[in-house]
Computed example of a mutant assay.
Amino acid sequence: MNQSWLQRAEIASAPLPNGKRLFQAYAALLNFVRQNDWTGACHDSSASLYMILSEMGFAPKLVTGEVKAEAGIFDHSWVEVDGKVFDVAVGFPGEDGHHVGPSVFASLNLDTGEPTELKFGVRSPNGLDPIGQFVASSNLEQYSAAQPEGMTIWDLTPHIGAECGVKMRKADLRRKYGKLTRVLRGQADAN
């Protein structure tokens, strides 16, 4: 990631409703991911962004499904606000993931500022892998039970939120969002 990602995201935020606050949440997450080498964490980072944006008064959707890139199709989670994709993690794949491009803000490729080439919510012939199926079928409380102690979405989200001026407590987040399940995109014909 370079500074131009933040600059492009900030420019893209200007015409959006409450764009400045949206950018602040996204930038806090982007900086956290970069500073903590939080790669390959799409399910965690999207859940954190969803909770932060919800606490800010936005009406985001927490989404999971498959994404098509030039390198192939992969399971992934992201956030949508007013039909636009907000996806920090796609620019930071894990060790077993392929680099598919930069992070996405308001459906824009942050390297170019143009619409992302990634296709969110597609369906491959095989559908979601077992991890993707678990993520899609679990609420956030069930999902967090599989995370390492002290590194759950409930632990990390208050730290990220504090960076953009959103005060949250772990217990409150669990109570408010623990029963939330992700919107499953592009898998309607899955059995």
Rank of each mutant, 00 (worst) to 15 (best):
E10H: 14
E80D: 05
E117G: 15
D172T: 09
R175F: 12
H43W: 05
H76G: 02
G97F: 05
Q142C: 03
I11W: 13
G132R: 15
S138I: 11
A190S: 11
K61S: 00
A27C: 10
L16G: 14
C42I: 04
N36S: 12
G72F: 06
S77R: 00
S124C: 12
V63K: 00
K119H: 14
E70L: 05
S124D: 14
L62G: 01
L53I: 00
E10D: 12
A41P: 02
V100W: 09
A106W: 12
R175S: 14
A146Y: 09
F92P: 03
R182N: 04
D129Q: 14
M56L: 12
N2W: 01
K84T: 02
Q147L: 09
D172Q: 09
L128A: 12
H76W: 01
L22T: 07
R169V: 07
K61W: 01
L184I: 15
P93W: 12
D129G: 15
R34Y: 08
D172W: 08
P158C: 03
H159Q: 04
E117W: 15
Q187G: 07
S107Q: 15
P60E: 10
T181F: 04
A14T: 08
L6M: 10
F105L: 05
S4D: 11
I131L: 13
P125V: 14
P15E: 11
I52D: 06
F23H: 10
E149P: 04
L62R: 01
P115E: 13
I73Q: 08
M56R: 07
L62W: 05
V33Q: 14
F86A: 07
G97S: 06
F120K: 09
S144Y: 06
N36C: 10
K20I: 11
L30T: 14
L16E: 15
I160R: 06
H76R: 00
H159C: 05
D37R: 14
S107Y: 14
S13T: 05
A136N: 13
S48H: 08
S4T: 11
R185E: 04
Q133M: 10
G94N: 11
G165A: 09
D189A: 11
C164P: 01
V135A: 10
K84N: 05
V90P: 11
M1P: 03
G91I: 02
A136W: 11
Y50W: 07
P125A: 15
S13E: 06
A190M: 11
K68H: 00
R8A: 13
L156G: 02
G91D: 00
S144P: 06
Y177N: 01
T39A: 15
L53R: 00
A136L: 10
A9N: 15
L173Q: 04
A171E: 13
W78N: 00
Q24Y: 15
P93M: 12
W78A: 04
A28V: 13
E70I: 03
A9E: 14
R8E: 12
S103Q: 07
